[in-house]
Design a protein around this nucleic acid. Structure first.
Length: 416
RNA sequence: GGAGGGGUGCCCGAGUGGUUAAAGGGGACGGACUGUAAAUCCGUUGGUGAACGCCUACGUUGGUUCAAAUCCAACCCCCUCCA
């Protein structure tokens, strides 16, 4: 079909669309006026990570085209846990943890959207506002008749879990019912007519669309984005130190920049389309770069993506730090750094211990192995002696540069 | 409630009394090659220690034994079928 609405057209062009419930009608609605669309975020952690970026960028794209993005925080559903495709039941969270997580996620999303009271300004909602006081009997009577067990069992998200003989508790099974209830609640309260999400949410989303139609007679829509993997098939977002967090305290802007810089060649174009605002024509020019030139496109990707999450200043600083560190081999000022008490350094610190306190190794043993394997460097010189003691004599311009492998660098500064 | 099956390291999975910090694979990390890429090849992959070692680890607790992931008991959890 040919889409008329700017949002759908660009969503397709950038690779955001996997499935849609009724694309023709959705397109018509989007063309006719402002549409409010939402995506839910589970507050299961205090920071989102790159795995959530597709969803965030979808909301951003929606707003770009004059529609209203709604970020729904699952303060209520987090008490249950989404079982979709999950290998095992989630741990249940306490109210205090959930509140803390919501605050962190708010901060993650904030830079990507314009919030306010205008017609296309973004808003955040928390489903605890309605789920917490929901009565069980009331829910059963009102919603229960509209859900078919056999139908729910047929959803891939549920089936895969049962097929693997991993069981599914009633508690988890109810998650999709509450998610449907959320959709209806947002439809009633805010006129939300579209729910988006990852492809793993398809079943839950379709259930919500059905519920709203059956109980309110209103047509609402569902749109899912594909699961993003790297060209070599790995799940995206894993790095040496775990998930690629959006929170600067958990992952420095420099490391965030580095994550994008290290994108596989084959993914550069796709990622530029999904994770930056770079115009499509420009991306088309960038992605055809061959050989080492593709690195310019990767730098652009890294800087654009970091700008969105951490601001232009942090992005530029990261780019410059990377340039100094990788292209000139210098100990750039802005490398992630740790501070070491002067007295400790004066007394001499074993190299392996310093790697641990710099966060480059998880244990002394790991640091030793790193040294033994030839991957540890001090001031860009490989450390060959496992028992090497580092002292004030090793300072260069008042700091030490530690490297684990070619990519991970830390500056150790001296303080009190 | 009954019958049967199962819970092993980051994950999958082998192991059914000592030679087991536990095969194999995946993942991850390091090295080589490169372009801070992919693919490939090599190495490493519980903690502590310079080291013989010591400590911790095979759902939990207790027991048998010179010796237990392996045998026994109780308990917890998961799965399948029956009620």
């Amino acid at each position: 079909m040919t889409t008329k609405s700017g949002f759908l057209a660009e969503a397709h062009a950038r690779g955001f669309v996997f499935q849609c419930t009724d694309e023709a009608e959705l397109d018509a609605a989007l063309s006719a006026g402002t549409v409010a669309g939402y995506i839910g975020f589970d507050p299961t952690g205090d920071s989102l990570h790159v795995g959530h970026m597709v969803q965030i960028m979808l909301l951003r794209l929606l707003q770009k085209h004059g529609h209203k993005p709604v970020a729904l925080l699952g303060g209520g559903t987090a008490k249950i846990g989404d079982p979709s495709f999950r290998e095992e039941a989630r741990q249940l969270l306490t109210d205090a943890q959930i509140a803390e997580n919501i605050a962190g996620i708010r901060r993650n999303i904030a830079p990507f959207l314009r919030f306010g009271d205008g017609p296309s300004d973004a808003i955040m909602a928390n489903n605890a506002d309605w789920l917490d006081k929901l009565g069980y009997i009331e829910l059963l009577r009102e919603i229960g008749p509209h859900f078919s067990i056999s139908r729910m069992l047929s959803f891939d998200s549920v089936k895969s879990r049962l097929d693997r003989e991993q069981g599914l508790t009633f508690l988890e099974f109810n998650y999709s019912i509450l998610q449907s209830y959320d959709f209806r609640e947002l439809s009633r309260r805010l006129g939300v007519a579209l729910q988006m999400g990852g492809s793993d949410q398809w079943g839950n989303i379709v259930s919500g669309v059905d519920l709203v139609r059956r109980t309110d007679g209103r047509q609402v829509f569902g749109l899912t984005a594909p699961l993003i993997t790297t060209a070599s098939g790995a799940k995206m977002g894993k790095t040496a130190k775990g998930a690629v967090w959006l929170t600067a305290e958990r992952l420095s802007p420099f490391d965030y920049w580095q994550f994008w810089r290290n994108t596989e060649d084959a993914d550069v174009g796709r990622f530029l389309r999904l994770f930056t605002d770079v115009p499509l024509e420009e991306i088309a020019r960038l992605e055809v770069l061959g050989g080492a030139e593709i690195n310019e496109a990767k730098k652009r990707l890294a800087t654009e993506a970091t700008t969105l999450a951490h601001g232009a200043e942090a992005a530029a600083a990261s780019a410059e730090t990377a340039r100094l560190a990788f292209e000139e081999g210098a100990a750039a000022e802005n490398l992630p750094s740790v501070t070491l008490p002067e007295a400790e350094l004066a007394a001499g610190v074993p190299a392996f211990a310093l790697f641990v306190s710099a966060g480059l190794a998880a244990s002394n043993g790991e640091a030793r192995r790193l040294i033994r394997g030839g991957g540890a460097r001090l001031n860009d010189v490989a450390i060959s002696d496992e028992g090497l003691v580092i002292s004030a004599a090793d300072l260069r311009d008042g700091a030490l540069k530690l490297s684990a492998g070619r990519k991970q660098h830390r500056l150790v500064r001296v303080g009190d």
